[in-house]
């Protein structure tokens, strides 16, 4: 008996060791990259003392247009992508989960295709669509990048929202309509409030994926003015970039983490309010299954 007990304990110790080592391995390199943004020298690999020169002053990340432009462009793409994907994805999800007709199944398959082909294939396909078909408005550059990101993020929003919708009985909307609400009213007054957690989770995921996206953003780019942060990191890392590059990457990471944290706190507040109101418990995780 005692030997078996000890055996179980050793198993747990082993598991804890793996978890701790994994977390160190996954996060320590990022922390070191952040540390190197305070390097006194020009190197991004050899420590030469502490300095704030890459954070303030003439050589700093905030004073070189190449870095500030990339940050500004990434932010613009993220805001536009979230603003388009969330309403588009949520309304499409309502259609897909409530429509009883022949179009729903093939449509939901098509909408989730971007999840089951490599991003590179979708990027190449969108690149040919934009360059070989004369579409109005959409060209290589900001418009193409936004269209590409929205197409890529849409299935994630749909997965999150449909998961939530399937836990909301259709009875609520029907009751509202029986009581005299028009379909738009029952949507606005019943469904949208119930979908708030899913809408919030979608917005966070959409923002994080947009900021992180490289392949589609790269294929849909045109001139250097449409260079996003991941694109700049990709081209500058193997070149002779200064630690200001690390500073820029850190700024983006901290921004994303802060926005996700604020979103998560709001999400918890929404979920708690709902539990008090005794509505059905939220059956949704913040992280979508099948992201990427």
């Amino acid at each position: 008996m005692s030997s078996r007990l000890r055996h179980v304990c050793w198993g747990k110790v082993g598991l804890v060791t793996i978890v701790v080592l994994y977390i160190l391995w996954s996060l320590a390199p990022v922390a070191i990259a952040f540390l190197f943004s305070f390097n006194a020298g020009y190197s991004r690999s050899t420590w030469q003392g502490f300095s704030l020169q890459w954070w303030t002053g003439s050589k700093s990340v905030f004073n070189l247009p190449i870095y500030t432009d990339a940050i500004r462009h990434s932010m613009l793409l993220a805001v536009l992508s979230v603003a388009i994907t969330v309403p588009l994805g949520v309304s499409l999800s309502i259609f897909l989960s409530r429509w009883r007709g022949i179009t729903a199944r093939p449509a939901s398959f098509l909408a989730t295709v971007p999840l089951v082909v490599p991003e590179l294939v979708l990027a190449l396909a969108l690149f040919f669509l934009v360059t070989k078909v004369n579409l109005p408005i959409v060209t290589l550059g900001t418009s193409g990048q936004v269209v590409g990101q929205v197409t890529f993020i849409l299935p994630l929003v749909i997965v999150i929202t449909i998961g939530r919708l399937s836990s909301i009985p259709t009875g609520y909307e029907e009751a509202a309509q029986d009581l005299g609400a028009s379909p738009p009213q029952s949507f606005r007054l019943v469904l949208v409030p119930l979908l708030q957690p899913a809408i919030l989770a979608s917005a966070i995921v959409a923002f994080a994926v947009s900021i992180d996206d490289f392949v589609i953003t790269q294929y849909m780019s045109s001139t250097s003015s449409t260079q996003s942060v991941p694109m700049l990191i990709y081209t500058a890392t193997r070149g002779g970039a200064t630690p200001a590059l690390n500073a820029m990457a850190t700024i983006m990471a901290v921004t994303t983490i802060l926005i996700a944290a604020i979103g998560f706190v709001l999400y918890r507040l929404l979920a708690r309010r709902e539990q008090i109101a005794d509505a059905p418990a939220p059956a949704l995780a913040v992280t979508p299954e099948g992201a990427r």
């Binding site: 990022v30 991004r44 990191i233 992280t287």
Partner: peptide
């Protein structure tokens, strides 16, 4: 979840330095 929020490119940049 933290590595998912830190962009892929920053994580690769970190390894290029190391």
């Amino acid at each position: 979840v933290l590595p998912l929020l830190v962009s892929y490119m920053l994580r690769m940049l970190a390894w290029v330095g190391l």
